[in-house]
Nucleic acid binder design. Structure first.
Length: 579
DNA sequence: GCCGTTTTCGGCCCGACTGTTTTCAGTCG
């Protein structure tokens, strides 16, 4: 029996810890500290944020130094914060630098150096004072600052206020991807275009993206950028040069096209795919071997610049296997690629069936027949109909099961399973009795209410669901909604351990705004011995195509075909269910 | 502050752009 909750309730969450170290780095930067110290704190903040385990607990136990980027000093500070909810280092710096400068330095166009000078030379300590001074045209009194800077500052400060969680300026991958693919296809058709590819965070299949990057080669670059900016989709041309153009489409997406020399297409595609952290680590490692890597090529200390048209050749030249873009986040992929130990990632083609969808029997918009027909056309070998139990009171559940059987018999080439989605109630019980659950082919259990309960309660509910002998899979386990709602606070290590022990699967829900479990959590779950199900939770026919978004998230979490339950035919999946 | 396929000390990615400059620092990705 794993102790749950109690100890954890008194520890700070990873997000809170990460914010403390970011604040510390900002204040140190304003104070003019060594740049490498700052980046060490910022790197640590990133690692803390993306950890699925409680880093505070690890630090208290002296095990946080196992996380790359966290050494003894930072571990001690984490433990200090866990105990006192304060960092002496931060308190000391607050006495030396006005904390308002932290916001000021984040205004686009300003930075720490400028914020510090604004304070020391003009006495500006807050965002409001900064706005006032910009309006009064006083910023230009500082050497190096002029009217342009005043305009930029005012433009940034007068932009509509962002309400924290709701509008992060990031767009769901699921919305961007169709437009991105269409754009690539359109550019590829243009006579001035030789090669064109997605790049940037969208190519890495990050769940939300800020802008969309494209790179291309062309015998006549200006002809291609001209074509790009004159597309009917374009609402605004932000920049338009011979080889580079930035546009904003009517639906608000920002697109960046770069036309690059063909001989270094591989170098440039790698560079513009990122991530920044991946590239930094790649270059650091190359420097140790006497190679300077940039977007233009690989320069040895003596000898010729290495350029290549092919990204795989570039990785090969540097001693790595080609790394799938989804893994390029500096989370161990470089080491694995050097040793030839990269995982063979699960692919969309591996998925055999979809184990979570709704119909008009509950809150779905497609009828049972429509959903099954559409899934069949997409090549799914089986589907589980998981209407909400709470919408199927009385004899409705049995009547639905009868229709499922009829539809199943009608289609020989797709198996239609009588699933159900039950609620995990506040006390951890489910909203259907065990006998009823036992009669279904497949049971999803999910939390749909009481998200803000404490860590101990949410953990207990999730553990209780795992322990029910009829629950096959926990749906959207962390409850997050992208741009809207953070994941629940729960003891994920305990949940993963119990899921593994009991043979309960955890879902990667492929809804564009869920993608839950997210990449890092899925990786941790599989590391703990859990098997994962990728499913759409489709409520209408066209949502059945979202499956690939779940696959991308799984790939970002390093998952292989074997880690994903529904890469197997249903007959095999059934044998993996609890007895 | 972190870290080790040249290192437990001495390094720490690279280049473009911007606004303001007569040669560059700061910012950005």
């Amino acid at each position: 029996m794993i102790a749950v909750g109690m100890a954890g309730d008194s520890l700070p969450r990873n997000q809170e810890l990460a914010e403390q170290f970011e604040l510390l780095a900002d204040l140190l930067e304003l104070d003019g500290a060594d740049a490498f110290r700052l980046s060490a704190y910022r790197r640590a903040a990133d690692r803390i944020r993306e950890s699925s385990a409680s880093v505070a607990r690890l630090a208290v136990e002296g095990k946080a130094t196992q996380i790359p980027g966290i050494g003894g000093t930072i571990q001690d500070k984490i433990a200090e914060y866990a105990e006192t909810r304060d960092l002496r280092a931060v308190a000391k710096l607050r006495g030396r630098v006005p904390v308002g400068l932290v916001q000021m330095m984040k205004v686009p166009g300003l930075g720490p150096k400028t914020a510090r000078r604004l304070w020391q030379e003009l006495g500006i300590e807050t965002i409001d004072a900064l706005r006032g001074a910009a309006e009064a045209k006083q910023l230009r009194e500082l050497s190096g600052l002029g009217p342009k800077t005043e305009e930029r500052v005012l433009a940034a400060l007068n932009r509509p206020a962002r309400d924290g969680s709701a509008n992060t300026g990031r767009v769901l991958l699921g919305r961007v991807l169709p437009v991105l693919r269409e754009t690539v296809a359109e550019l590829a058709e243009h006579p001035a275009c030789e090669r064109v590819s997605e790049a940037g965070s969208a190519r890495r299949r990050i769940e939300t993206v800020k802008d969309v990057d494209l790179i291309a080669t062309a015998p006549d670059p200006p002809a291609l950028t001209q074509h790009f900016v004159s597309h009917p989709r374009v609402a605004e041309v932000v920049a338009h040069g011979r080889t580079k153009a930035t546009v904003v489409s009517y639906d608000g997406f920002r697109f960046d096209l770069r036309v690059v020399p063909p001989e270094s297409y591989g170098n440039l595609l790698q560079h513009f795919t990122g991530s920044k952290d991946h590239n930094v680590a790649l270059r650091e490692s190359a420097v140790r071997r006497g190679l300077s890597v940039s977007e233009y090529g690989v320069q040895p200390e003596e000898g010729e610049l290495f350029q290549t048209t092919d990204e795989e050749e570039l990785y090969g030249h540097l001693g790595y296997a080609w790394i799938p873009p989804e893994l390029r986040e500096n989370r161990g992929e470089l080491e694995a690629a050097r040793k030839g130990e990269l995982p063979k990632l699960v692919a969309l083609e591996d998925i055999a069936g979809d184990l979570h969808m709704h119909t008009t029997w509950s809150d779905g918009r497609g009828t049972l027949e429509e959903m099954v027909g559409a899934a069949r056309e997409l090549g799914r070998g089986y589907v589980a109909i998981c209407d909400h139990a709470k919408r199927l009171r009385g004899d409705l559940l049995e009547r639905q099961a009868a229709e499922i059987q009829t539809v199943n018999e009608r289609h020989g080439d797709i198996e239609v399973l009588a699933g159900v989605e039950v609620d995990i109630r506040r006390d951890g019980s489910l909203d259907l009795e065990d006998e009823t659950l036992a009669a279904r082919d497949w049971v999803m259990a999910s939390i749909h209410s009481g998200f803000t309960e404490g860590r101990a309660e949410l953990t207990r509910r999730l553990l209780a669901a795992c322990e029910n002998p009829h629950v096959d899979c926990v749906g959207h386990p962390s409850g997050r909604k992208l741009n809207r709602r953070a994941p629940y606070d729960a003891d994920w290590d305990a949940v993963f351990a119990r899921a593994a022990e009991t043979g309960t699967f955890l879902e990667i829900n492929a809804q564009p705004d869920r993608l839950d479990l997210k990449d890092a959590m899925a990786r941790a779950a599989v590391g703990a011995g859990v098997k994962v199900v990728i499913s759409t939770d489709a409520h209408r026919v066209h949502e059945l195509g979202n499956l690939e978004l779940g696959v991308f998230q799984a790939r970002r979490g390093w998952l292989t075909k074997d880690d994903v339950v529904n890469t197997r035919p249903w007959a095999k999946v059934r044998r993996m269910l609890k007895a």
